[in-house]
Simulated scan of single mutants.
Amino acid sequence: MDSYNSNNTNNTNGTNGTNGTGNVNNNELSVIVERLKSSDEKDLNDPDCKISEVEVSSGDFLLKFPRGAYTSARTVKRKSIMDLQSHVSRMVHSLRLMKFIPESEVPTEKSQDNKENNEFEAEESSQITRELIPYRKSDTFKQLIIPILRKGLSRYCEIKGLPSHNNKRECEDEIKVTILVCYSFKEKRPILVAHFINLYSLNTSRCKVEIYGEPRKSAEAKDSQWVRDRKLLESSMQPGFNEIILLDSNTQNIYEGLSSNFFAVLYNPDKQEPLVVTAPIHHVLEGTILKIVRMICERDKIDFQFWFPNANDAEQWKGAFITSTSRLVLPIELIKFRNGRPLVKLPPHNNTIEHIKNEVEKEIFHRAYRILW
């Protein structure tokens, strides 16, 4: 479908609960805000929007729209977005990498195999390129998204009875915000839409992961097609496990999780100090928490390198952790391989990981961009 329709804001389809990654399943009330008119309106501060109250998870929300660029953010005390500029930059970067072409014009695998190197490839139309210009520039995209965030957070707090605006009552509930920009060939216009739902985090201080599945293509772009592609892997995750980590089966190099970045803590015998490694950023999506981890390591003189952690060395690791919007920094206690290799149990405590975890939790307040007052 080309855009989300909800005639009944009290839809009750779905099931309760959260999945292993801490994301909410269906049957949880959420708010969707979609911009209705073009981006060249003079009044950017109060655009015409459609606001829906529906029961749909953030993942299913993305699947109800055409393929596009997306990002998942979190609130800080429900009034601010953590590191908004990083999310804006990610969206702009992804949109610049993506081409919006009708499915009928996308070459099939067979045609791609047979084409010569100099043969014409399908290109985005000049009209679509013009329409997407405001979304591919950081300053104008930020102007477009802030009113959507303001409307969505206000409505979500209102329907959930959460304090917002000038209410001084505090509450620990935070909100997950998923922003999507796609192109509707049916409506012949770009779509800017955001989804607001309760932010679920795992009720555990450590997690279990499976290493399985090949790295994804076009990892630098936050493309909602990946949400579709990873469904099969998500459904195969064993009970009690929280994430699947992707690796190259030939080299055993570890890339990233289905919805997280992956880090291993090694010991550098030459310097006699810890070494934090994660896959090079051109091979994975650089998450907002990854950027903060890198900053903390550089600031606090912790050796940090963009090297591929290798699964063959897992028994020698001093620790490992994943990062994401909902989980921030989550240490790993157990690694499972699907090739029959014995489980790898990691040390129960690592001072380097604990330091990074505590500093990330502080940093999110420093990077909060105020949306509601």
Rank of each mutant, 00 (worst) to 15 (best):
107 P>S: 11
295 M>A: 12
225 Q>A: 05
184 S>A: 05
65 F>Q: 04
79 K>E: 09
356 I>W: 00
287 G>E: 07
71 T>Q: 00
56 V>A: 09
280 P>S: 10
214 E>K: 12
71 T>H: 01
2 D>W: 07
95 L>E: 02
292 I>A: 01
263 F>L: 01
175 I>K: 09
198 N>Q: 13
5 N>Y: 03
66 P>N: 05
5 N>E: 07
198 N>I: 14
91 M>H: 06
346 L>I: 11
11 N>W: 00
308 F>C: 01
373 W>G: 09
113 D>S: 13
156 Y>N: 06
312 N>E: 13
261 N>C: 09
19 N>A: 04
26 N>L: 08
22 G>E: 01
210 E>K: 11
255 Y>I: 12
260 S>R: 02
269 P>H: 05
52 S>P: 00
239 P>G: 06
372 L>Q: 04
298 E>K: 15
282 H>W: 05
144 L>M: 11
348 P>H: 08
96 R>N: 15
355 H>Y: 14
20 G>R: 06
140 T>Q: 12
13 N>E: 10
291 K>W: 00
86 S>R: 04
185 F>N: 06
189 R>D: 02
221 A>Q: 08
352 T>R: 02
332 I>P: 07
343 L>H: 12
317 W>I: 01
160 K>F: 00
46 D>P: 00
58 S>M: 03
102 P>T: 14
58 S>I: 07
224 S>H: 11
353 I>W: 02
149 L>V: 09
218 S>A: 06
125 S>F: 11
66 P>F: 06
297 C>H: 07
253 N>W: 14
44 L>I: 15
290 L>P: 00
343 L>W: 04
12 T>K: 15
147 P>Q: 09
83 D>W: 09
23 N>M: 11
302 I>P: 05
9 T>W: 07
24 V>H: 03
209 V>R: 01
336 K>Y: 08
241 F>R: 05
119 E>W: 07
355 H>W: 10
7 N>M: 09
350 N>R: 04
251 T>S: 15
111 S>I: 15
126 S>Q: 14
231 K>Q: 15
253 N>S: 10
120 F>T: 15
105 E>D: 14
304 F>K: 04
39 S>I: 08
184 S>I: 13
272 Q>V: 01
126 S>H: 11
268 N>A: 02
207 C>Q: 03
277 V>Y: 12
16 N>D: 11
88 V>R: 01
96 R>I: 02
364 I>R: 10
85 Q>M: 10
66 P>D: 03
279 A>G: 04
111 S>V: 15
91 M>E: 03
228 R>K: 13
226 W>V: 14
170 E>N: 13
